[in-house]
Amino acid sequence: MELTTVWFALIAILWAGYFLLEGFDFGVGILLPVLGRDERERRLLINTIGPVWDGNEVWLLVAGGATFAAFPEWYATLFSGFFLPLLIILVALILRGVAFEYRGKVDDDRWRRRWDACIIGGSLVPALLWGVAFGNIVRGVALDADHEYVGGFFNLLNPYALLGGLTTLTLFTLHGAVFLALKTDGEVRERAGRLAATLGGPVIAIAGAFLLWTAIAHRDHGGWILSALAAAALAGAVLAAYARREGWAFLATGATIVLATFALFVTLFPDVMPATVAANSLTVDNASSTPYTLKVMTWVAVIFTPVVLAYQGWTYWVFRKRLTVAHIPPASAPAREKV
């Protein structure tokens, strides 16, 4: 197998891992005002992802770095053509990260509400825009002969891409609700379980429509199979949520996200950035680095990837227990200094 194909597959795995792990982080942030009815419950929700959210974002950094090193032409076209939406995503992620650290620094309700708004927006905006971005990548964009994007920002807001954005937004929200039902206990667990069961129908409708549209538009047999498996996993997640089997529901929503991501990449291959004019498309061949670069990268990945996976797995094992409001002590932040 060509190293270009190997690295295309590895990048697909990295994005699938990012959406799997960061997906429930986004869902928790989006559901903060829905399931957190008072300050202690909101702190409980944040604490469920507190030890892992920053580690989950490492998958995004590695995916971006791998794309830059393995397919520099793809990286250059993507980050120049999608500059504005990617900048919005980056700002949202920065604000969310700062909010996690700063919301408890001052014992003041208005202070916390402002940072909570950053957490909610910093979760909702990327959850929506990642789907819009990948929808456009799969659909194809206007590239010239030099592989530069020549469309405008509003060309990216087409019906297919917007449906992709709604798919990731609703799917990540469901994933977050299931995660909270799995990670908490007491009233929050019950509310999260009921919400997950309620979200099931709309998510099936939206995600099913997007996967069906993708399969019909591209007629790729591998994409069809993976889309069908993703749909089956999503149906299983909803059934498990109704039955209050949180563990199975979380595994199923995770499988849905991974299979759907793989379906998009399989549909995309051998292109990495298809153009509306086929001759201008970027492929795994004309967008890749030199064979020597790919060979060195492969050895680095073989050595360090197991270490990273082992460390992250250990982190999840250490923080595996359910949390309740009883685990959240009263606020003890320092009072705001008077100026």
Results as ranks from 00 to 15, higher is better:
Trp111Tyr: 14
Gly55Lys: 15
Ile120Leu: 13
Ala69Arg: 01
Thr173Trp: 08
Phe172His: 06
Gly50Asn: 11
Trp74Gly: 00
Trp111Ala: 07
Leu93Arg: 02
Gly151Trp: 03
Arg96Met: 04
Ile46Asp: 02
Leu143Phe: 05
Ile119Ser: 08
Ala142Val: 04
Leu166Gly: 08
Phe68Arg: 00
Cys118Ala: 14
Ala181Gln: 11
Phe83Cys: 01
Leu157Gly: 13
Tyr160Glu: 12
Gly65Cys: 12
Gly165Ala: 11
Val138His: 05
Phe83Ser: 05
Asn155Gly: 01
Val58Thr: 15
Ala76Trp: 07
Leu45Tyr: 09
Gly121Tyr: 12
Phe179Met: 03
Val91His: 10
Ala127Glu: 14
Leu95Ala: 05
Phe153Ala: 11
Trp130Leu: 15
Phe154Trp: 13
Asp109Asn: 08
Ser80Tyr: 05
Leu171Ile: 08
Ala177Pro: 05
Arg139Glu: 07
Leu162Phe: 09
Leu90Phe: 14
Tyr75Ala: 07
Phe83Tyr: 13
Leu128Met: 14
Thr167Lys: 13
Pro51Leu: 07
Leu162Ala: 03
Trp74Tyr: 06
Leu45Arg: 07
Ala117His: 08
Asp109Met: 08
Ala133Thr: 14
Asn136Lys: 03
Asn47Met: 09
Arg110Val: 09
Gly152Cys: 00
Leu166Met: 14
Arg139Gly: 03
Ile89Ser: 04
Asp108Glu: 13
Val125Thr: 14
Trp59His: 03
Gly165Asp: 08
His175Lys: 10
Ala76Ile: 05
Leu156Val: 04
Trp111Glu: 10
Val132Pro: 02
Ile94Cys: 06
Gly65Met: 15
Asp108Trp: 11
Leu180Glu: 06
Ala99Asn: 06
Phe71His: 01
Pro159Asn: 15
Asn158Cys: 14
Cys118Arg: 06
Val178Gly: 02
Ala133Leu: 15
Ala66Arg: 00
Ala181Tyr: 05
Pro85Glu: 06
Leu162Ser: 06
Thr168Glu: 11
Leu171Lys: 12
Leu87Gly: 10
Ala70Leu: 04
Leu44Trp: 02
Gly165His: 11
Val58His: 15
Val150Thr: 08
Gly122Phe: 11
Ala63Met: 11
Phe153Val: 13
Leu169Asn: 13
Arg37Phe: 10
Thr170Cys: 08
Gly135Glu: 10
Gly131Glu: 11
Leu60Glu: 01
Cys118Met: 12
Asp108Pro: 07
Gly131Val: 11
Phe79Asp: 08
Val98Glu: 02
Asp108Arg: 13
Val98Asp: 00
Leu129His: 07
Ala177Cys: 06
Val91Glu: 04
Thr67Met: 12
Trp130Ala: 08
Leu60Lys: 00
Leu90Ala: 10
Gly140Phe: 07
Ala63Arg: 01
Val150Trp: 06
Val141Trp: 03
Gly104Glu: 10
Val106Arg: 14
Phe83Thr: 01
Ile89Gln: 08
